[in-house]
Computed example of a mutant assay.
Amino acid sequence: MRAVTVTPGVPNSLRCDPDWPEPPAEEGAILVEALAVGICGTDLEIISGAYGEAPPGQERLVLGHEALGRVLEDPTGTLRPGDLIAGIVRHPDPVPCSNCAVDEWDMCRNGRYTEHGIKGLPGFARDRWRVQPKFAVGLDPALTNVGVLLEPTSVVAKAWDHIERIGRRAEWKPQTVLVTGAGPIGLLAALLATQRELSVHVLDRATSGPKPELVRSLGATYHTSPVNELDFEPDVVVECTGAPVVVMDAMCKAGPTGIVCLTGVSSGGRTIDFDAGALNRALVLENNVVFGSVNANRRHWELAAEALARADQEWLNSLITRRVPVGAYAEAYAPGPEDIKVVLEFAT
């Protein structure tokens, strides 16, 4: 069968192996036919050699952590043949730590977790894959065209879950949300904010292309000015760019008792002139909270599946700006200037 693989740590070693071995039974009881995998910046960084870890004893890593497939067989009876399914990316560490022991593997404390297509587990960019029932998430059949968005949606479902948990520290009635960045994570964060009937603002540098209209069709407001020039103080900020200046400005912009969730990952190596003392004073005196969020556990995946099922399917489909057949896999991993989400298709 076909599999899209790399040699971790070796730049530009991407290839499609035509005779990759069938998934062994120890990977999981549920056998799945791959329909598609979504591509994100993590995949591109692995291809560049920045990181990535093959399974023990193997030289190459199968890519793909944003999965969509159909069940071929499930002897456990958890799912039925033909069911639409996604595989949870992260698995708990073998020790396990206190969080992994209670299935909060997204909050792993010792870093020994594994991740499909990223760290120590083969990914989903292959014709067939297997998954354990515990890590299999069924999807509404109506999501056949957009279910590949489940993994990024799980990331923002977790972010909103934690925002709301923090908000319960006091009487809290948020009204205004600022999302910085209109990539897939930012747009999905805005979607979940509109589902909470909040006033949503999305900020991005793009002045043309699909992003402004996607934001407006949510009923949200689109901005291209710097964060510090906005004329309102949001109750919630979901930062999705990782750009240092935007991160700092977002932390400063939140209103009193505001909550800032950082989901963008900075590359590091860049310093900026910044008044850290003034930020400290504002955070303390206004009871603000800044926290980071990444990955998701099963509860968040299920929340994400519910959110996608409630969303406008045409709008979700518009997030997928390119669908590339696996035979042209190299094109899928070459980002275009107006790409939002690119999907590599294995079957239709």
Rank of each mutant, 00 (worst) to 15 (best):
R126N: 02
S199H: 12
A282F: 05
E104A: 15
P141A: 15
E306S: 03
G111Q: 12
T153S: 10
D17R: 00
L344P: 04
E213Y: 01
L279Y: 11
S266K: 11
G183V: 08
A25M: 07
W172H: 01
T348I: 11
R169I: 03
A278M: 15
V131Q: 06
N145E: 15
A193H: 09
Q58A: 08
I320G: 07
C108W: 10
D235S: 02
V179G: 01
V156N: 06
P24D: 15
L178I: 07
A276K: 13
I85S: 05
T207H: 01
A182Y: 01
G258A: 03
S266F: 13
I88C: 09
L203W: 03
H116E: 11
V247F: 11
R281F: 06
V265S: 10
G186M: 06
V265L: 14
V102D: 10
A220F: 04
M248L: 15
S293N: 12
S208L: 05
D273L: 15
Y333C: 06
V177P: 00
T257P: 01
T180E: 11
I163V: 12
V247T: 13
L68D: 04
P21E: 15
A305Q: 03
K341E: 15
A67M: 13
A159P: 09
G69A: 11
V290A: 07
N110C: 14
S293C: 15
E331L: 03
V71I: 09
Y113K: 07
G120R: 07
L31H: 00
I166E: 01
E22R: 00
S48L: 13
V202W: 03
D19P: 00
D93W: 09
E53C: 08
A125M: 04
P256R: 05
R80M: 11
I185C: 11
D74H: 03
S293T: 14
L63S: 07
L198H: 07
V326I: 01
N288D: 06
G264C: 12
G64H: 06
L279E: 12
D83C: 11
F124R: 02
L283T: 09
A125W: 00
V284Y: 07
G167D: 00
P141Q: 14
A170W: 09
Y329M: 00
A190S: 09
T221R: 08
D231C: 12
D83H: 12
A305F: 04
L319W: 06
G117W: 08
H162K: 12
D204V: 01
G147T: 07
G57F: 10
W105D: 11
E22H: 01
V260S: 02
G123R: 05
P184V: 13
R298S: 10
A50T: 14
I88F: 06
A86M: 10
L283I: 12
K341T: 13
N110E: 15
Y329N: 00
V4H: 00
Q175A: 06
L308W: 00
D106C: 13
N228Q: 10
D103H: 11
L192K: 08
V246F: 08
D273G: 14
C261T: 11
S266L: 13
D235F: 00
L61A: 07
T153C: 11
G292R: 14
H223Q: 10
E233W: 01
L150Y: 05
M248F: 14
P133K: 05
H91A: 08
P133R: 08
